[in-house]
């Protein structure tokens, strides 16, 4: 049983087609709400965590321990006037923040969350090639950033967008190669290694232990994908004011902001799924999502610590690093994994 089937059980009086349509719709809305809530919680967590690392208290005025601060911020951003630069290219300028958010939201849907008590599986949708789909959806986000940078007609934004693109091309190849290693290892055990669920079931031992290089590469790629320090050249606040999102205000800026935190959460969830066994763990048949959540939160906290303690790397050094170090390392990782898979039969 899964969440969808339970919903269909409620709406089965509408007939097969309409009933599934309605339950899909309700499920989608539920996912949207849950993800939005998770992101708000994560921004709250970030602000509290950052404050405590810096020996401050963080938000503590709105609500108990400032828990309603983010809601207040959201309302503030909604109520703000959206200032549009007069020289903009209107269509891409308006579409860009949405593209960032849409790619992110869709990618969350494909992640397997496992089953929770009596509800059953709460994974939204299944696909035999969900790994490829997720990375395809994540590839939408840089397009949004590029569009935002170019359409604002701002020099800072343009530079930020160019940096973001240069960054993207230099880390995505090693990222996909490390992903290939995971799929390769899983292909020895399951017949559909591109399905995230079978990837998890293939992990008799977390792949993070078998592929230390792979998890390192993937983590770096996820840091770069979410673009926070040390790899936030695209929006480096002390150099390019705010990079590609310089000209955005109000809710449109909030979309970029949420997109960034969402990518951190997505990256952590992906990393926990691909390398740390996702929902598997003790009692995973009933508390699978909680395992995903715990693993993701630990990774998120590590990401925040990285963010807060490291300086920004220079863009040319990062491109250098991506092509001269990450790429060879990812090949080495691939070879090692090949030896493990074929030679030792793991």
């Amino acid at each position: 049983m899964s969440l969808l089937e339970r919903l269909f059980g409620v709406f089965s009086f509408l007939g097969h087609d309409l009933g599934y349509a309605v339950s899909y719709l309700i499920q989608a809305v539920l996912y949207l709400i849950v993800i939005a809530l998770l992101l708000i919680l994560m921004i709250y967590l970030f602000r509290k965590f950052m404050a405590r690392l810096q020996q401050r208290l963080g938000p503590n005025r709105v609500g108990k321990f400032g828990s309603l601060q983010l809601i207040a911020d959201a309302f503030k951003l909604l109520g703000k006037e959206s200032i549009l630069p007069s020289e903009r290219d209107n269509f891409p300028f308006v579409v860009a923040p949405m593209m960032v958010l849409i790619g992110l939201m869709l990618a969350f849907v494909l992640i397997p969350y496992g089953s929770l008590y009596w509800i059953g599986s709460i994974t939204a949708t299944h696909s035999a090639v969900s790994v490829i789909l997720i990375f395809a959806l994540m590839a939408i986000m840089p397009i949004g950033e590029l569009l935002a940078g170019v359409s604002s007609h701002n020099k800072y934004a343009l530079l930020g967008a160019l940096r973001a693109v240069a960054k993207d091309v230099s880390f995505e190849v090693p990222m996909m190669l490390s992903l290939l290693a995971v799929v390769m290892m899983a292909s020895a055990r399951v017949s559909t290694p591109l399905d995230m669920e079978s990837l998890i079931s293939a992990q008799f031992l977390a792949y993070g232990i078998l592929q230390p290089l792979g998890i390192f590469l993937f983590f770096i790629a996820m840091v770069a994908r979410a673009s926070y320090t040390p790899f936030d050249m695209g929006e480096s606040d002390s150099e390019l004011v705010s990079g590609y999102s310089t000209e955005y205000t109000g809710m449109r800026f909030a979309m970029f902001y949420i997109g960034m935190f969402g990518t951190i959460l997505l990256g952590s969830t992906l990393l926990s799924t691909l390398y740390l066994g996702g929902y598997s763990g003790p009692f995973s048949s009933s508390i699978g999502p909680i395992w995903v959540f715990i693993k993701a939160i630990i990774l998120v906290l590590i990401s925040f610590t990285v963010w807060l303690s490291l300086p920004r790397i220079r863009i040319d050094k990062f491109v250098n690093f991506g092509w001269k170090y990450l790429l060879p390392v990812s090949f080495i990782n691939l070879i090692l994994v090949g030896i493990l898979t074929l030679g030792l039969g793991w």
Partner: peptide, 11 residues
């Protein structure tokens, strides 16, 4: 940096 998580806020 992480160690400071367990220190008291100074504000």
């Amino acid at each position: 940096v992480g160690k400071h998580l367990f220190e008291k806020p100074v504000t």
